Amino acid sequence: MSIHIVLYQPEIPANTGNIARTCLATNATLHLIHPLGFSTDDKMLKRAGLDYWYHVDVQHHDSIEELYQKYDEKHFYYIENFGTTNYNEVDFSDTSHDWFFVFGRETSGIPKDLLVGKEERCLRIPMAQSDQVRSLNLSNTVAIIAYDVLKQQNFPNMH
């Protein structure tokens, strides 16, 4: 099956453009939860995504609830710096279903009320100076997660 990258109300077009490029390179679907902090016609978005933007499988959703209605929530993971499990401690090698990774806004992350009851699926990327660095850049975080999942799956359909 496939990887799905979910951006919850992203704010910075260049990050979303870079993430779109990563999605294309990894055969991942990009889900954008509205409202967005920019227009998808934004030149910064296009510059970061270059000419790849139109080749990416981008799905737009008015809310995260709309996304939950379309897909089984049990395969959703939430990437947040307060997660108690490191992302590399989870086995994502099963390719019989889709995996969803939800990333929050650049400035405020995923609203905590959306994570109630989902705490065991909140994953973090360990950092050495977490008292000085609030988080990694969103596009870097997406790339780390996507490529680790693909590594666990032996890079299906990639060369």
Rank of each mutant, 00 (worst) to 15 (best):
3 I>T: 13
4 H>C: 11
4 H>F: 04
9 Q>T: 15
9 Q>V: 09
10 P>K: 08
11 E>G: 09
11 E>I: 07
12 I>V: 15
15 N>L: 04
16 T>C: 06
16 T>N: 03
17 G>K: 07
18 N>E: 04
19 I>S: 02
21 R>E: 05
22 T>A: 12
22 T>R: 03
24 L>R: 14
24 L>A: 15
25 A>P: 01
26 T>M: 13
29 T>F: 01
30 L>N: 01
37 G>K: 07
37 G>D: 08
38 F>K: 12
40 T>Q: 11
41 D>G: 07
47 R>H: 12
47 R>S: 08
48 A>E: 04
49 G>V: 06
51 D>V: 09
51 D>R: 05
53 W>Q: 07
54 Y>W: 00
56 V>D: 10
57 D>P: 03
58 V>A: 01
64 I>Q: 04
64 I>C: 02
68 Y>D: 11
68 Y>A: 08
69 Q>N: 14
74 K>G: 00
75 H>E: 02
79 I>V: 14
79 I>T: 10
83 G>W: 07
85 T>P: 00
86 N>W: 01
89 E>S: 15
92 F>V: 06
93 S>R: 10
94 D>A: 13
97 H>W: 05
100 F>E: 03
100 F>G: 03
101 F>W: 08
104 G>Y: 04
104 G>K: 03
107 T>D: 15
107 T>W: 01
108 S>T: 13
108 S>A: 11
109 G>K: 06
109 G>N: 04
111 P>I: 12
112 K>I: 11
113 D>A: 11
121 R>C: 04
122 C>H: 06
127 M>P: 00
130 S>Y: 05
134 R>E: 11
135 S>G: 06
136 L>Q: 07
138 L>Y: 01
140 N>G: 02
141 T>H: 01
142 V>T: 05
154 N>T: 05
156 P>K: 09
158 M>W: 05
158 M>H: 15
159 H>C: 09
